[in-house]
Amino acid sequence: MSLHLEIVTPEKKVFSGAVSNVLLPGTDGEMGILEGHAALVSALKPGELRYESEGKIVTMAVGSGFAEVTQEKINVLTDMALGEEQIDEAKAEEAMKRAEEQLANMGHNDDAEEVAHLQGIIAKSLAQLHLKRRHRN
């Protein structure tokens, strides 16, 4: 018996298949999931998601979201899931720079929702850049 993983973004189902293990970027730290894991629901932060399928390790940059874990299935709902080949390093750097500049120009009384949005853009850009650069070296 194996573990079934589904990774879903608002645009599409990114992956659905059998895996032997999954590493998720939980808000309280990285979580390793194996078959038979206790049921849980956890928030995810932007970072790296890794899974092993058919002896091959696959790594993705993911955004914020949630993971629902049962003993035989993991559902990942996230606002971004990109493999290394899908990441445009220049675009990610530009998005991060724009968000940092906008954040730096905001006043103390500005909208907290806008601040959170900009911080999310920065976190997702960093996740993409970290994945791209680690695999380049």
Rank of each mutant, 00 (worst) to 15 (best):
A90T: 08
V69A: 02
R98G: 05
G55Y: 00
D28A: 13
G55H: 02
G120H: 08
G83F: 13
E48H: 09
T9F: 03
E113R: 15
G65S: 00
A61K: 05
L82H: 10
V69H: 06
L34D: 03
N21R: 15
H117S: 14
R50E: 03
E54D: 12
S42C: 12
A95V: 00
R136M: 10
P46W: 09
A43T: 10
E93L: 07
A95N: 05
M80C: 09
L118P: 05
S16L: 06
F66L: 08
Q71S: 14
E35P: 08
E89R: 14
F15M: 06
P10R: 09
I57T: 13
K97N: 09
V14L: 13
R98A: 06
G120D: 03
V69L: 02
E100K: 12
A18F: 12
E100P: 04
V58F: 11
L24T: 08
E100T: 01
R136K: 15
V8I: 14
T9N: 09
E89H: 08
L24V: 04
L118I: 07
S16C: 09
I7P: 11
E35F: 14
S16E: 15
E89Q: 09
A95W: 01
V58G: 02
F66K: 07
A127V: 03
A61D: 03
Y51K: 14
V14C: 07
E6Y: 03
S42Q: 11
S42N: 10
A123F: 06
A104I: 00
L3S: 12
E85K: 15
T78F: 06
L24K: 14
Y51I: 00
D88A: 10
D88Y: 09
G83L: 07
Q119F: 01
I33S: 14
L77P: 14
E114G: 04
D79F: 03
A39V: 10
L23S: 14
E54W: 06
S53R: 13
E84R: 13
S2K: 14
Q86F: 08
E84L: 07
S53V: 08
S64T: 07
K12N: 11
E85V: 12
E48V: 11
Q86C: 07
N137V: 07
T9P: 12
K91P: 10
E84Q: 15
S53W: 05
G29E: 03
H37I: 00
L131C: 01
V19W: 11
L44G: 08
K132T: 01
K13P: 10
S64W: 05
V62A: 01
G120S: 11
A18T: 05
A39R: 13
D88E: 11
M96G: 02
A92T: 00
G36M: 06
S53L: 04
S125N: 02
Q102V: 07
E94G: 03
K91R: 15
L44Q: 10
N21I: 03
G55W: 03
P10K: 14
